[in-house]
């Protein structure tokens, strides 16, 4: 390694480490603020003098946060399972079957990627209020039950599965669905994992549609609940920061457990280009 390369490396480490502080400070500030009692929240020092967990106790006992948490878990898990199943099924069908209209169907599905959600929310809302989906889990979930991007992704991966393998199973008398479910799916597990985790995070964080479709506070998801809770408690920033921490922590945990899949998933999302 030459001298200039070494200097270059040192500078890189220096800048990158400095940026870590910028990137993580808001998280620290959020947690630190959540540990301050009301008396200290407006005082200009970083660390709480009398750190307390009272804010957490208060939020968990007398607000709807636990309920919102459950709602979010339920919504994010259900949509993710649905997406995994249907996206891979469609991806598989388009990749592995030859049938009239195959290309048109694929293009039709992909073309829906061009429609911004914002354009659909008003018709969705009208539809939901007519069909009584307002304030229901289904109402929050239905727009995300199948995704065009996931289909695109799964098709890419399904195409790499050799046809011989599937035909061999066919000869062994495995049903068509069985071939998909028991042969093809296990082969694309890594892609499924990335799709699952990205989808989970996306649904956990979704805001605009859940905000519109739920009117009763009991049916809010965590982000909508947090926005509502915060605007209600504008003078209690310590509680707002506690709520923010509570909605962030599960994701940070998921993030550290599944970091590989997440990074891979983000890379895959660049695949479209």
């Amino acid at each position: 390694m030459t001298r200039s390369e070494r200097i270059n490396k040192v500078i890189s480490y220096f800048v990158l480490t400095g940026l870590i502080i910028v990137m993580t400070f808001p998280f620290f500030w959020m947690v630190l603020s959540s540990l301050k009692p009301f008396r200290e929240i407006y005082r200009p020092y970083l660390f709480p003098k009398n750190p307390t967990l009272d804010n957490y106790k208060q939020i968990l006992s007398s607000s709807l946060f636990p309920r919102w948490f459950l709602n979010s878990v339920l919504v994010a898990l259900s949509t993710t399972f649905s997406v995994l199943f249907f996206d891979s099924l469609v991806g598989y069908t388009i990749a592995k079957y030859r049938f009239p209209g195959r290309n048109i169907i694929f293009i039709f599905i992909l073309s829906t990627l061009m429609i911004p959600t914002e354009m659909l929310i008003i018709p969705w809302y009208i539809m939901s209020s007519r069909l009584g989906w307002i304030d229901s889990y289904w109402g929050i979930m239905f727009p995300g039950m199948i995704t065009a991007f996931g289909i695109f992704l799964m098709r890419q991966f399904m195409e790499t599965i050799p046809d011989d393998l599937l035909d061999a199973a066919r000869i062994d008398g495995v049903s068509e669905f069985g071939i998909f479910y028991r042969i093809a799916l296990p082969l694309v597990k890594p892609a499924l994992a990335s799709l699952a985790i990205l989808n989970f995070i996306g649904n956990w964080n979704a805001f605009l549609w859940p905000l519109i479709v739920s009117s009763k506070p009991r049916m809010y998801t965590l982000p909508v609940g947090l926005a509502y809770f915060s605007s209600e408690n504008m003078m209690h920033w310590e509680l707002i920061m506690t709520g923010a921490t509570i909605s962030t922590i599960p994701l940070i945990i998921v993030f550290f457990i599944f970091q590989k899949q997440i990074i891979r998933g983000i890379m895959l999302s660049g695949l479209k280009g």
Binding site: P217, Y228, S231, E232
Partner: peptide, 8 residues
């Protein structure tokens, strides 16, 4: 008894 934030 149902409540909503003032803004909404």
């Amino acid at each position: 008894h149902v409540t909503f934030p003032y803004e909404s």
